[in-house]
Write a protein that binds this DNA or RNA. Structure first.
Lengths: 236, 236, 236, 236
DNA sequence: CATGAATGAGGGTTCATTCAT
DNA sequence: GATGAATGAACCCTCATTCAT
């Protein structure tokens, strides 16, 4: 069984697939990728329990048992999708933030909000897949496999909020943990409910979210409409 | 087959139970209630797909097939739970707001936040059940049955936000629809991740949420720590 | 799930089934019995791995999933058949021997040979089922469940051989353990290859087996043709 | 597709392997042999139904599909193993007996018992494989392919017993057919249950078996402990 | 001569659902 | 009003088998 590194998969979603046979060398890797993509798509709108391997196979253009050539079971397939999504989001976020290392904490938060929203809204089923995973329908086995990456992703946000707090930019009476969960929850809800065509533009969503969340977190009054992290998110 | 109207069930949860045998007359209604309670509990932490009728039966103290005497299928049972939860939340919210009709829009929002969080965190499996339902694992049939009540609940919040906007209390550059989704999403995320004992106190969560969301939505700077809707939420 | 005691099942095979509803009270017990009978039949000529639950269901007159109402899985079903067979054989053997407690060891061995052969050849699929189990195709889980009863059955024979040895009736140079395995193996082979109509009569098989094995084990020269345990084996 | 005659394979096992690359010319034949050896090993302790081609491949050091270059399906592979085992046993036995042509029938039987036991216990997975096959888990197709060789092997024993009977050495009241099945069954049971280290020595097993079976078959009282066929069995 | 990749049939098992009692 | 017993659809997964390379 061929097993590509997760990081490859995680970032691959944003690349054109026309070069796959050149880069990854071989049918297996391509099929594996298609299966992950398919699983991400299905997970994104059915959740783990609702995902049938036959659906995944159909989307990927293979029979269901072919999945077992590439993954040892449903749990492993789903876990890899979740992990790939988490890693993709975190890496993208980290890269984006690295390009704004010298900005002040609030601006960095604004950039993070921008990046997270654009990723989950526009780009990847992987991101939507793991956002769904919050429902308790994920078996313990999968939960364990994802936990390290979930924590890693959460730590990025915790650090951002921590920076703001240390800089004295956070309102009093705000519990940082609550702030963090509220923040991520709010962003996920937005990406979840966002539907192309029927929702405000992504730009509008991003701007509103920044406005509300940053003014909410901090005393500082600024105009976030000039911040843009979109060029950075292309990096990955 | 005995079949109570949905509204009966929905609102019954807000009444004292001492009169149930008088009003609804007997064993059937009692079992029906136990099944709804059981289903709410199971839905709250397994979601629709993850809920097995045998689990519901076990919690309710009956065999699974007994469910079919009271509900025509799994979908109907779940729908009634969701609707009951939605109605309960909406009615409670409306009652609470009615007691603060003369307060200004931001205070009313603060009260709504308080009420919503306390309901979902502390009180009812019904509320937690429908909050979970955001995951797409609910069949279309169920979705349709719940839609009217979902919309009704959403309208309460839409009105609150609308009032604030008309009063000129909302920041510019904030799309009201986005604000609404962000708000509810943030609250649901908080109730979702809240775990007795391991999380900050409910009071702390409420306060932080109010602080962030209200300062985020409005230019006004206030201290929300004095607002308390808890006496109102006891009404239901 | 209704669960009859094994001993009931074990001995039930030799009773007329016309009274089952009177004795065991209920459809479940009857179906359970039919399933065990069916499984015994299938196991007897396909072995564990070769047994399909659909076959068992068909023979028993139910659908395959109905098996799960009575047994928790294939292993449990098979184990119960094996154990029932073992218990049936052992109990029958013990009862038969009890009726010949005062006979000398060789006569008791002759009686045991008679009983074992008649049981496995003529009466029960259960006996044939566990005789087949010698093949290694039985999962460890099943093996463990049967081991106590296998050992108990083996001990009966070990005791018989031990008695003969202590009475000085066993030839020198015969290892008792080897003798025991040879004995049981020989009997099982005979029951295995025996086919109604195409083989010598059961009486002839029994007589030859006694002749060979007892003369083989002991110096004593006797005529075993007068021994008959058949009346005893009706006991169970 | 290269397809060696069965007899080639069957007898090849009895030749020294130092010349194989010369005689059979090449990689294909070597792999074929490895596959048969592997299949014999797996069949010996899992039986036909329990044998997976992937297991065979793994033992042989090739992938499962490679089997299809050498055999047309699972049944053919197994049949060749069985036939090879049968032929090996028969040829060895015949050679051994040829060296004792002038001995009296009982001595020849003693030698045969010795040879059979040592072969199955010590030497070959092939022998153990076909002994297992007595379980009915072998499909009809395989059964048919093996039948001629099974009969041929059985005839060797039938002849030995026939000789004894004609020489007046067999007890009365012994059916020759029953004697034959009892004999082979007993030997197979012994080889089956024999486990290196935890069982009596092979010598002890052989001696006990001879003692019991020969004294059982015949009136003659002898001491079989001096008979030894081991030098003959080296022939093969 | 062998592998990589995939297929298709089928097996065990789960679960919503039914129906007689 | 509820249970006991069973059904049937569907799911995950295994394994013999195929075929291009």
């Amino acid at each position: 069984m061929v097993k590509a590194k997760l990081s490859t998969v995680a970032t691959s979603n944003t690349q054109t697939s026309s070069v796959k046979s050149f880069e990854t060398g071989g049918k297996a890797a391509a099929t594996r990728r298609r299966l992950l993509d398919a699983a991400a798509l299905v997970l994104a709108d059915k959740g783990f329990t609702g995902m049938r391997l036959s659906d995944v196979g159909e989307v990927a253009g293979v029979q269901a048992p072919a999945i077992y050539y590439h993954f040892s079971n449903k749990e492993e397939l789903a876990s890899e999708v979740f992990v790939a999504g988490l890693v993709h989001c975190r890496v993208t976020l980290e890269n984006t933030l690295k390009a704004h290392e010298d900005d002040d904490p609030l601006e960095r938060l604004a950039i993070a909000i921008d990046a997270h929203l654009r990723m989950s809204v526009r780009q990847s089923d992987y991101a939507r897949a793991w956002i769904h995973r919050i429902a308790g329908d994920v078996p313990a086995q999968v939960q364990e496999l994802c936990q390290p990456d979930e924590r890693a992703y959460a730590r990025v946000w915790a650090r951002l909020i921590g920076e703001a707090k240390e800089a004295g930019l956070l309102r009093d009476d705000i519990d940082p943990k609550v702030a963090q969960q509220l923040l991520i929850g709010a962003l996920n809800a937005l990406s979840f409910s966002w539907k192309a065509g029927r929702s405000p533009s992504v730009d509008a969503v991003v701007l509103s979210a920044q406005q509300i969340l940053l003014s909410g977190l901090s005393f500082e009054e600024r105009d976030w409409s000039t911040i843009d992290a979109s060029e950075a998110s292309v990096v990955s």
